[in-house]
Simulated assay, not measured.
Amino acid sequence: MGIIKVENIRVFANHGCLKEETAIGSDYRVDIKIKANLQSSSVSDDLADTVDYVFLNRVVREEMAKPSKLLESVAKRILNRFFEEESLITKATVAVRKVNPPIGGDVEMVTIQMTHKRKN
């Protein structure tokens, strides 16, 4: 087994419960941690034998582009796509951070994190 991380993916998106949030949008950061069998790719040196970072980034960008009220919904969609589209992934964690959230205080960011494991 091995771990692949794609960290601090910067995205501008329109998520939130307030109308202003979905109209104006804001900055987000997404971190991904994937657990997969990397033994084959470490020997073959072939992209087809591993989880492609381009795929991971594309899924994040596509799902972040769909407005949602809750970051939990976005994270769940990202996880669902990872497991539906890449059979090598055995476990995945997604953290979605909203920068400067409008919550009535001086808060740098809020983060939700979700993890999913493949069922045998």
Rank of each mutant, 00 (worst) to 15 (best):
I3R: 06
I4P: 00
K5T: 15
I9Q: 05
I9S: 03
R10W: 08
R10E: 14
R10Q: 13
R10K: 13
R10I: 13
V11K: 07
N14K: 15
N14M: 14
G16H: 03
G16V: 06
G16K: 01
C17T: 12
L18T: 11
K19F: 07
K19H: 13
K19T: 14
E20V: 08
E20W: 05
E21M: 05
E21N: 10
T22R: 15
I24D: 10
I24H: 11
G25K: 09
S26K: 12
S26D: 12
S26H: 12
D27A: 10
D27V: 07
D27N: 15
D27T: 07
Y28W: 09
R29S: 13
V30R: 02
D31C: 04
I32H: 01
I34F: 02
I34W: 00
K35V: 10
A36Q: 01
N37P: 05
N37I: 12
L38N: 02
Q39L: 14
Q39D: 14
S40R: 15
S42L: 14
S44G: 08
L47A: 14
D49M: 05
D49F: 04
V51Q: 01
Y53V: 02
Y53E: 05
Y53W: 11
V54W: 06
F55N: 06
L56K: 01
V59D: 00
V59T: 02
V60D: 00
V60T: 02
R61G: 01
E62L: 09
E62T: 05
E63Y: 04
E63V: 08
M64G: 01
M64D: 03
A65R: 09
A65I: 09
A65P: 03
A65Q: 08
P67W: 04
S68T: 13
K69F: 14
L70M: 15
L70G: 12
L70N: 13
L70Y: 12
L71N: 09
E72V: 08
S73K: 12
V74I: 11
V74Y: 04
I78G: 00
L79W: 06
L79Y: 06
N80M: 09
R81T: 12
F82H: 00
F82I: 03
F83V: 02
E85A: 08
E85H: 07
S87N: 15
S87M: 11
L88S: 09
T90W: 03
T93S: 12
V94K: 00
V94Y: 03
A95Y: 07
V96R: 02
V96K: 03
K98R: 07
V99P: 08
V99D: 08
N100P: 10
N100K: 14
P101L: 00
P102K: 02
P102A: 05
I103M: 02
G104P: 05
G105E: 01
D106M: 03
D106Y: 01
E108V: 04
V110K: 04
T111N: 04
I112F: 05
Q113T: 15
Q113Y: 09
M114G: 03
M114V: 13
T115S: 14
T115M: 09
K119M: 11
K119L: 14
K119V: 13
N120G: 14
N120E: 15
